[in-house]
Nucleic acid binder design. Structure first.
Lengths: 117, 117
DNA sequence: AAGGTATATTGCAATATTACGATGAACAAA
DNA sequence: TTTGTTCATCGTAATATTGCAATATACCTT
């Protein structure tokens, strides 16, 4: 047996994991950063910014698109990509509870584990 | 040829990707949620909450630990795990620029791509 | 139509991940 | 010391990901 028991987890867990997974490659982080930094939709030009072959970049773009992290629409010959801020903001929202000093009914303050490791 | 050209990317890109990757599996999301929800360090008890064998859970815990997302310290027989909020908060911080309506010097407002796809 | 450009898809090899049984190591309890 | 508990590691099988050359598709230009 091998991979992926995703049916065993909740839809929320799978969705969160799917987005995180799409972000889990430096090339895809680089693509996101580039799209964000250029502050507008990018038509073409992405391949030349990355140290990867065109086929590989195209594959990474598809994964980002499948995860809903970017949108692309056809613009004549080229294709225009930009960040889907909705998905990102839902993702970051979902991570908030992982951060906060989140008190429960009794006002319990979580303490850290003793030593680091 | 095969996998991982991580040397080609910046350290920041690799670090971000590494954390995202660690969160990129529903079992690991479930573990994080469980640790957060229980609002304290958990000694043992994690395996029984997941639909996976003990060896598999241990492997997932190690990946979260390697990414710095959780800390664990020995507590007699058991091992006590808790969320490392530092790493998480650095991660969420790093994602902020992906969200914001981030103006550049000229005050340019990014517009969305026309159609969704 | 023919040629050029931009992106996607296919096929394949290299590598990584996921999962688990079996086993090992460390400790507590009897 | 022996037994049971808890967690890590090893070995291995199944599957997924990564990367690229080659090819396909789509559109624009001439």
């Amino acid at each position: 047996m091998g991979a992926s028991k995703s049916e065993q987890f909740t839809e929320e867990q799978n969705t969160l994991a799917q987005i995180a997974k799409a972000l889990g490659h430096p090339a895809r982080i680089a693509i996101m950063q580039f799209l964000v930094k250029s502050n507008k939709c990018i038509c073409g030009d992405i391949v030349s910014k990355l140290p990867l072959a065109q086929a590989t970049v195209s594959q990474h773009l598809r994964e980002l698109k499948d995860a809903g992290l970017i949108k692309g629409n056809i613009e004549g010959n080229a294709i225009c990509y930009c960040v889907n801020r909705d998905t990102l903001s839902r993702y970051v929202q979902a991570l908030q509870p992982f951060l906060g000093a989140h008190f429960d009914d009794a006002g319990f303050v979580p303490k850290n584990c003793g030593t680091t490791q």
